[in-house]
């Protein structure tokens, strides 16, 4: 899986939350108010289902979830293991 592939799939999942608003890969979707805190759980479930991965305690760093860059980094690092 390439970074671009992961990025496209993550962005596709986020689109309904953006309501047409812009989102840079480094933007914090929580700080921008695009999602609330409970969305973090949806993100985790999405990653596990979409990418067939299992998230463990070592992945529970907010920096992995708050930006597209963080999500892609998490997905590709897990895939590389």
């Amino acid at each position: 899986m390439t970074h671009d592939d992961a990025r496209a799939r993550v962005r596709a999942f986020l689109i309904p939350q953006l309501a047409g608003r812009p989102l840079a890969d480094s933007d914090d979707i929580f700080a921008l108010g695009y999602v609330n805190s409970l969305f973090a759980m949806q993100l985790a479930l999405f990653l596990e289902k979409e990418f067939g991965m299992s998230l463990g305690p070592e992945d529970m760093d907010f920096d992995n979830f708050r930006t597209v860059d963080g999500l892609v980094r998490l997905v590709t690092s897990k895939a590389a293991v």
């Binding site: 929580f30 805190s37 409970l38 969305f39 973090a40 759980m41 529970m60 907010f62």
Partner: peptide
């Protein structure tokens, strides 16, 4: 469970 986890993740 979701609220507890997100509370911890987002500190």
């Amino acid at each position: 469970s979701e609220r507890i986890w997100s509370q911890r993740l987002l500190e």
